[in-house]
Write a protein that binds this DNA or RNA. Structure first.
Lengths: 143, 143
DNA sequence: TACAATAGTTACCTAGGGTAACTATTTTTG
DNA sequence: CAAAAATAGTTACCCTAGGTAACTATTGTA
């Protein structure tokens, strides 16, 4: 079997179990992956507009609108006043921050658990490779 | 940022663009990822029961039933007689084989393209790491 | 100042996945 | 060996996650 084929087979074969089990962890906190990644982003970068989140997640704007609305209903995020009246800049509420910290513990445990036996050097190496492939994909446009 | 966190961020950040562009390639042949992976499996292993496919893809049986039905409607797969009357063993039809070979060309080009700059050694290394993580996930059950 | 671009929303559609409950067979076991 | 348990698959129904098209409101630009 060609190496490049094997690579993507393995990639897909890893994704599904990873997401499945991630969702099991998140379900303990009544969250889903899409919501979690937004909480993560806001916790890391302080605030973001919907377009920013859309680019970050590689999803269309309506998808972000929906997820943000749900998070707003839950009281985890709130709008921040901004000069440009078109944009909707969001940040975590106090509750949102607390929830994030709480879930972070669960997810940290999960992630560390499934990386058992992989050296930090290997992890860094893989991160570099994944970054490079992502760049390749985004660079080539939609040929 | 902790390495293990970074690892999974990068993993998710790679997945979405990869799947997006994969689907763009497959759309040229009116296929979707779920269908394609089944064609791939059948081409590689000759035949499979629905449970086998369900395990391979880490999805529940109803999902496989649906996808297989669609492929059957398209005339790409057909049932194979089997001793155990409960199971439904499927294989590619002649048309299915031809379609697979056809799409394979498109996907090969796509995959090679986005792996540009990644040495074969690096690819193999990454494959090993992904395999190991997958094993970790499957081993730990659903804690 | 008109026109183009950008941010976001609304309405509607699809894939892809899940659970629960069921039928039809095999297997296992008391 | 008959009854119970396990297995393969289907059906019905639910949800997340995503997409496109068409729209409003604002901001930038020629």
């Amino acid at each position: 079997m060609n190496t490049y084929r094997e690579f993507f087979i393995q990639f897909l074969q890893l994704y599904r179990p990873f997401e499945n089990h991630l969702n099991i962890q998140l379900a303990k906190h009544d969250l889903f992956r899409g919501q979690w990644t937004i909480l993560f982003y806001l916790s890391n970068y302080g605030s973001a507009t919907l377009v920013e989140l859309s680019n970050y997640q590689s999803v269309e704007k309506p998808t972000v609108t929906r997820t943000i609305n749900r998070l707003e209903e839950l009281g985890y995020v709130e709008q921040l006043p901004s000069i440009d009246k078109r944009e909707k800049r969001m940040q975590l509420t106090l509750l949102g921050k607390n929830v994030y910290e709480d879930v972070r513990v669960t997810i940290d445990a999960y992630e560390q658990n499934i990386l058992q036996g992989i050296s930090e050097a290997d992890q860094l190496h893989a991160i570099g490779i994944m970054r490079e492939i992502r760049d390749n994909i985004l660079k080539r446009g939609d040929k």
